[in-house]
């Protein structure tokens, strides 16, 4: 069942030199319980897309056009108070840095209890009991004692577990996880991802996993959406996109992952840099860096067409061929 639909979302930041489009017409669908990896370089618009879904784009940024629908209901135009009730309760969020995501002057228990009381209408005692259960659930030893401790008394990995508990405690149907493991030790990353995946599978929670780490995607996601310069270039099942990428940009991304045990191979990289958001060229944004670019690419913007297990926006596919 479709849980979330993004319908041609345009996110714009007004600046002194005119508006800047960070997301330029993005459409996606996410089913219940599905884990979608959202990948791309820095500045591709991944995090902004996440913020657009939760309605937390920093002003003066705004959703210029398009719709965000949760179970068919539009949520991008809700009054702030209505949207607040959806945040945490329907759509949770996990941010990059567990060290700064927790309020330093309140115990982790208090933060969990507050969150559950706000959304679930529990009394203090019941909320406290559930908070202990949640800490146990995310694998924190001695949860009853840990509940009354402050964030600084936890290690980085433990804090990210607490953050996951906080994001999940009001039982949202969707979690936006924005680079949830980037700030963590490599040895802890896999544990946190496994935990997130297990909890979401158990509770039927869908996840949008924003990352630039293909390894994380391969481990965790069901589907992958690749973004480039504010647009979706390819979306498909994780196995297909990783084994057999269609878009030249996705191919470039896959080739730039180092292969273990292949010391002699030179690491390929995509030449050039992503174009700035200002003064976009008329054609495909990737054309200047694309090894397979044809003349059409520089003049006509490709629209997404069905290909592989999903869609791809490239002139090498679809009716142009």
């Amino acid at each position: 069942m479709t849980l979330l639909e993004l319908d041609n979302i345009v996110v714009e930041f007004p600046t002194r030199r005119g508006p800047l489009e960070a997301v330029k017409g993005l459409s996606l669908e996410l089913n219940e319980g599905q884990i979608l990896g959202l990948v791309g370089e820095s500045g591709a618009g991944k995090s902004i897309t996440g913020a657009a879904i939760t309605g937390l784009i920093e002003p003066p940024g705004l959703i210029r056009s398009g719709q965000v629908r949760l179970r068919g209901q539009r949520i991008d135009n809700l009054a702030p108070e209505k949207m607040r009730r959806i945040r945490g309760k329907e759509i949770g969020a996990i941010f990059q840095d567990p060290l700064t995501s927790l309020n330093p002057v309140y115990t982790v228990g208090e933060q969990l209890i507050d969150t559950m009381r706000v959304h679930l209408g529990l009394d203090h005692k019941a909320a406290r009991k559930r908070a202990i259960d949640w800490l146990a659930e995310v694998g924190i030893p001695a949860p009853e004692a840990r509940l009354d401790q402050y964030p600084h008394q936890f290690s980085g990995g433990m804090r990210q577990r607490v953050v996951i508990a906080l994001a999940l405690c009001a039982e949202p149907k969707l979690i936006i996880a924005d680079e949830p493991t980037t700030a963590l030790d490599v040895s802890v990353q896999a544990q946190i991802l496994a935990l997130l995946k297990r909890l979401c599978r158990e509770n039927g929670t869908a996840v949008i996993l924003v990352t630039h780490d293909m390894g994380v995607i391969a481990e965790t996601a069901d589907r992958v959406a690749v973004m480039y310069a504010g647009r979706l270039v390819e979306i498909g099942d994780v196995a297909q996109v990783i084994q057999d990428p269609l878009h030249p940009y996705t191919k470039g991304l896959m080739n730039s992952i180092p292969q273990i045990g292949n010391r002699d191979a030179r690491l390929t990289q995509i030449e050039g840099a992503m174009p700035g958001l200002r003064n976009p060229a008329p054609g495909c944004a990737f054309a200047p860096r694309c090894p397979q670019a044809i003349d059409t690419c520089r003049t006509l913007r490709p629209i997404p067409v069905d290909a592989g297990s999903g869609q791809v926006a490239c002139h090498l596919f679809g009716e142009a061929q």
């Binding site: 939760t54 937390l56 607040r84 009730r85 959806i86 945040r87 945490g88 309760k89 949770g92 969020a93 941010f95 840095d97 700064t100 995501s101 927790l102 309020n103 330093p104 309140y106 933060q111 507050d114 969150t115 706000v118 959304h119 953050v163 906080l166 994001a167 009001a170």
Partner: peptide, 21 residues
């Protein structure tokens, strides 16, 4: 601060966000 952003993303009411957190 990040912890205020995270609290806002958890849908904490403004009153609690401002005067408590």
């Amino acid at each position: 601060a990040d912890y205020i952003k995270f609290a806002r993303a958890r849908g904490m009411p403004n009153r609690m966000l401002h005067f408590k957190y």
